[in-house]
């Protein structure tokens, strides 16, 4: 994935570059609006991460000039969280919006969502190690042993399996499983993961559902230590 990051805050630009590069993206950096505009118009990117407040040329103006020429997906970053700002950004043609402070995991998830458009047909059966998830029959089994899951547990498992190998934050999980798009103190995701783990991991030798402390959860087969 080829990404352009237009961000004047050096520390943010730095970790975005590092984080995205490590996720396998090829990243270009621009530290002001004019550089950003030049790159955005000259190079074909899969997605552009655009700060709203920029020296030289502000994010909205850059976006407007970009939209006259290209449809590159754009995710806006802003420190101002007023609905007018959001509406202004979306009107100007932004595809998504993130308010600072945002988590890197969330940015990554949104970037993937933006570039996933027109992706290949979803599989009907997912495999994670010896775990098999039949999305049509809504059944899961491990080592040919049927695992009984409630509807929500199955929804959680299929979300994790669709993103296997990828760390999902609690916020992302809450949004994908329960369609809850607000911050809450309720530790619903932790409890749900605990229950799911009790069903899919506890009876078996190897665990597939891992906690990445501070980041979220990942479903993957890890080599035995």
């Amino acid at each position: 994935m080829k990404v352009l990051v237009v961000e004047d805050e050096l520390k943010i630009a730095d970790y975005l570059y590092k984080g995205l590069t490590e996720q396998g993206c090829s990243v270009d950096l621009a530290h002001d609006g004019l550089d950003g505009q030049h790159l955005a118009l000259e190079v074909d990117y899969d997605v552009i991460v655009l700060d709203q407040m920029l020296p030289g040329l502000d994010g909205l103006a850059l976006l407007k000039s970009l939209r006259t020429a290209k449809d590159t997906p754009v995710i806006m970053l802003t420190a101002r969280d007023r609905i007018e700002d959001r509406v202004k950004g979306l009107r100007a043609g932004a595809d998504d919006y993130l308010v600072k402070p945002f988590s890197f995991m969330e940015l990554l998830a949104r970037l993937q969502a933006l570039t996933r458009r027109g992706r290949k047909q979803e599989a009907t059966e997912l495999h994670v190690g010896d775990l098999v998830i039949d999305l049509l029959a809504r059944k899961a089994s491990r080592n040919d042993r049927r695992i009984d899951l409630t509807a929500k547990e199955f929804a959680l498992l299929s979300v994790l399996a669709r993103h296997q190998g990828q760390i999902l934050s609690k916020t992302a999980i809450a949004e994908m499983v329960w369609d809850v798009n607000f911050d809450t103190n309720a530790n619903v995701v932790e409890v749900a993961i605990k229950r799911l783990r009790a069903k899919i991991d506890a009876p078996f030798k190897t665990g597939l559902l891992h906690t990445v402390r501070g980041m979220g959860y990942v479903l993957e087969e890890r080599p035995a230590p």
């Binding site: 969280d81 308010v99 402070p101 988590s103 501070g214």
Partner: peptide, 28 residues
């Protein structure tokens, strides 16, 4: 780092909620 991340997530949660309340207070 993981422990730090937990604390930072907590800070982020507070800041986000404070921003939400501030906006509501401003009559949004």
């Amino acid at each position: 780092l993981q422990s730090n991340l937990e604390d930072m997530e907590r800070l982020r949660g507070i800041v986000n909620d404070m921003l939400f309340l501030a906006r509501a207070n401003q009559g949004e």
